[in-house]
């Protein structure tokens, strides 16, 4: 007898049950279905900025991380069309930063890179900007490499909501949007950030880097070397409707 009386929607033809209040991505991940995402993090209120999680809901594009689950909704995600759009988004993020993976300590643990691998991004697609963005190495335990920021705002959210500090913010609009440090000098050393802060842990790419660990875990044995992000994200997904910060 089916005791599951929860409402459900269809994702790529499969029935996904949900709890009222869940978003499409939360319900999907909980039910063991991956939808690519970058700025969404199960512990934080969705930000909806990267658009990697774009699905078609009843034929219309929507961000799965902000779209409330509704009974009877028909959602498409694993289609060539949507994955093509996602590949283009990944290429644009690579183009507007400086992502030289062979020299990046985050390589193998990086969500942007892992999305590129999993989606099969084989080429640059766009002319890279090659911006000149000096790094901030002022802090004894934490390196800040602005070249790799994808503007997901996770560090901003974590620093405010979990660490209670407000070390980071995003300034500017459009193409001049950038990460800044909330100190008069603009230097990380002049903030009260600590290496144990959630803000340090949460950065999905190689911007906020813990010093002194470097390549302790060698390339080839890192998170997304072991399994693709589509499998890892399901492993990380809360099995129950989420507990979240904020």
């Amino acid at each position: 007898m089916n005791m599951d009386v929860r409402p459900s929607f269809l994702l790529d033809g499969e029935e996904i049950p949900f709890e009222p209040g869940q978003t499409v991505i939360q319900a999907a991940l909980t039910a063991g279905h991956y939808i690519p995402h970058l700025c969404y993090h199960p512990e934080f209120v969705p930000h909806g900025s990267c658009k990697l999680c774009t699905v078609k809901a009843n034929g219309r594009p929507a961000a799965a991380c902000t779209l409330p689950a509704q009974a009877g909704l028909e959602v498409e995600s694993e289609t060539e069309e949507l994955n093509d759009l996602r590949r283009t988004l990944v290429q644009m993020l690579f183009a507007e930063g400086n992502h030289f993976c062979p020299a990046c300590e985050k390589s193998g643990n990086c969500v942007l890179q892992a999305l590129g691998y999993d989606l099969g991004v084989m080429t640059a697609g766009f002319r890279h900007f090659f911006l000149d963005r000096p790094v901030d190495a002022s802090h004894p335990d934490i390196l800040l490499d602005f070249n790799r920021c994808v503007l997901c705002k996770l560090c901003v959210r974590a620093s405010e909501e979990v660490d209670g500090k407000g070390v980071f913010s995003l300034a500017g609009r459009g193409i001049s949007r950038r990460l800044i440090v909330s100190a008069e000098s603009g230097r990380l050393a002049d903030t009260d950030i600590a290496v144990t802060d959630k803000a340090v842990e949460v950065c999905p790419v190689g911007v906020i880097i813990r010093k002194h660990i470097g390549f302790q875990t060698p390339i080839g044995r890192r998170r997304y070397d072991v399994r693709p992000i589509s499998a890892q994200a399901l492993e990380d997904a809360p099995r129950k409707p989420e507990a979240r910060h904020g």
């Binding site: 993976c101 590129g116 691998y117 099969g120 693709p228």
Partner: peptide
């Protein structure tokens, strides 16, 4: 040609 997991690498 298709390179799957572990074969597409940027580093």
């Amino acid at each position: 040609p298709r390179l799957g997991h572990g074969l597409i690498e940027y580093d």
